[in-house]
Amino acid sequence: MDKKLERLRINLPHAGGNLQLKNPVLTASGTFGYGLEYTPYGNLTELGGIVTKGLSLKPRPGNPMPRIAETSCGMLNAIGLQNCGVEEFLKNCLPKLPVLDLPVIANIYAHSLDDFAELSGILADAPGLAGLEVNISCPNVSCGGVLFGQNPREAARVTEAVKKKAKKLPVIVKLSPNVTDITEIAKACAEAGADMLSCINTLTGMAVDLVKRRPLLANITGGLSGPAIKPVALRCVWQVARAVNIPVIGIGGISSAEDALEFIMAGAYAVQIGTANFRRPDRAFTLVREIADLMDKLDIENLESFRGSLQV
């Protein structure tokens, strides 16, 4: 690795040690498959890490079509957490990923505390996994995550359930912006033992067809992502980073090196690239060097000292 990229290394301290990343560029759950889908477009080991498509105990077929709609500066999705299930992931996906040189974080989703615990227990023993990201906020499945993520006590209970089973794996709780005060939920998760927080998940939205008088998504509502939500995400990261003493990972409309450094300046340790992967499938890969170049231009010595340097 050349010297320039060396400066992008970061450590995310947690109870069980340090999550070390080559650079702050992670890929966001649901936008990068299980990683293997993007091997035609870049070398996965050049990324800071990947976060998998949300995994559940059993395979899930997801929502009816149509599931996606492009909106101004963003997109809505109501995929409904279609995934192959944890067993298939461990058997056929994880072994194909270069885990020795690529932190792989499994995003997990469940309907109950028991299922969250069981899923965490299974993944805790998975060879090569670098961490768990807990989806407590997906707005698409009405009987599930949204309830956990909108209530501080429920969010804390999920965090505890996962932590108990996760062994040494760092547990990242992914927060929903669809709440009155995100810092309340953030503090509850941190107190319950979360090692890190990632924010934000999508904002609940809707798009309609004026001529057909029908919603564009079969699910009627969906999660809004992309550049449209960046200001909301930046606000949330800034608030949460000030409210807790654990690392925060920024997500929400990050498409450029400028976006990434803005989130780090607001207090994020790392960032996740989501909808921007759709704009161009090598986006996460090319972003790494662009961040290093921009650091040169702005005289940023290292990310450690730059983090949280926003003057207010």
Partner: peptide, 16 residues
């Protein structure tokens, strides 16, 4: 189909 990623990742263009 309407598509977002073209890479088999977003699962927005699925068929049964």
């Amino acid at each position: 189909s309407r598509m977002a990623c073209g890479a088999g990742a977003c699962l927005g263009c699925v068929v049964k």
